[in-house]
Nucleic acid binder design. Structure first.
Lengths: 212, 212
DNA sequence: GTAAATACACCCAAATTGGGTGAGATTCAG
DNA sequence: CTGAATCTCACCCAATTTGGGTGTATTTAC
């Protein structure tokens, strides 16, 4: 599949650093397959024009004057969901990564990448992928992994899992084909092991320690 | 960083197809930086030897005779957590991908990749990354994204979010600095909008439709 | 064979939940 | 500017849920 012989990929940039922004414009426009249709130093201006710019891909910074990038991603997805958004930032902070992805980012790159990586990333996201820097990919995958040293038995974990989905003791008992009293015993033991005294505390602690 | 001048990366294979397994062995051993220390056609044999094989990286198939790969990943992580596990399979099924990652896989490749991608992936995972096929990465990232056409208002979403963490009405009211009665009203409206009649149903539906 | 895990029983009181109905204040789009 | 949606609070009621206590029996794993 070659993009050279078809319509160029339309790109919008949102980046407040003039040097970097202009650098990206030049880098991308050099490439036959790409066309930078707009470049802004803030989200507000970008959002006002996104529906006329109609970009295929948006490269979005996070730290911006005025509205931040996370909010910007959310709003973009609301008014022009067709756009694929790649975050390009210096921040490798866990929290920010997940917030960006939850808000609708389709990729996440850190600025210390070689510039060629940017080109690849745009091709990747247009080809149905989700370009991420090495460390980001690891962060994302690690977020799925459970704690392999759980103090809870597998049955207890099962019970807590159902409890965390809002099920009542009765519900859980039915789901596991055991008596409600047995569920209660399990939950008492879970509370004792986790040193908590309520559903909410148990779920919070279990989430934090990746037990469920 | 060159692996050629240091200790080779030790690799174990778990793959029941003889042709593919032997193909991987040859491909990897051709490479100076790698050494295949063992290759099995089932998980059971692998698990018996992993502590003596001491692989850095394990390439694991999912569909296997006897114990399946997901179970295999879990057990491997229990008895030899040091190993980095890359799933190599034909299955691109959502459920399987997430189960594998939850179980402890650090990467996920589909078998239709060019063989060179396997080499890259092993280097990637040893370098702190999480190698994934294009479609898999998209699946994983998409799993974070919320539905941008939620029928719920932002306040209602906030309430449902707290409810899904096991909080009681009282808890939620305190957390949002509003009255318990207001929380009740929100929840009644949530139930009406989602056409459900209980906490568990609301959470289930909200999760399914990615409202929270 | 001992410890952990799993399962069940009964007591009790406080808290939670779901449903109904109504209503004032604010915000936002047409 | 107006009407719809949202956010806020109030009071009624009954059934269910929850957390804590204590005790027991069977199975499983090391």
């Amino acid at each position: 599949m070659s993009y050279q012989n078809t319509n160029p990929i339309k790109i919008s940039l949102v980046e407040d650093d003039n040097i970097i922004r202009e650098g990206f414009v030049m880098l991308l426009n050099e490439n036959q397959g790409f066309r930078v249709v707009s470049a802004y130093n803030n989200c507000e201006d970008f959002l006002r024009n996104v529906q006329t710019d109609k970009p295929n891909v948006v490269l979005m910074d996070i730290e911006l004057p005025g509205m931040n990038g996370i909010e910007g991603i959310e709003r973009t997805k609301k008014i022009y969901p067709h756009a694929q958004i790649i975050v390009v930032t210096v921040y490798e902070n866990d929290d920010l990564v997940f917030k960006a992805l939850c808000a609708g980012a389709g990729g996440y790159l850190t600025k210390n990448m070689p510039s060629q990586r940017l080109i690849e990333a745009i091709r990747e996201i247009m080809g149905g992928g989700a370009p991420m820097s090495t460390n980001i990919a690891r962060l994302v995958v690690a977020s799925f992994q459970k704690n392999h040293n759980s103090p809870l038995s597998s049955r207890e974990t099962e019970v807590l899992e159902l409890l965390s989905r809002g099920k009542s003791y009765t519900n859980i008992a039915e789901g596991l084909f055991i008596d409600k009293e047995t569920v209660r015993t399990h939950i008492k033991n879970i509370y004792w092991k986790l040193e908590v005294h309520s559903k909410a505390e148990a779920i919070e602690k279990a989430m934090k320690e990746k037990l469920i």
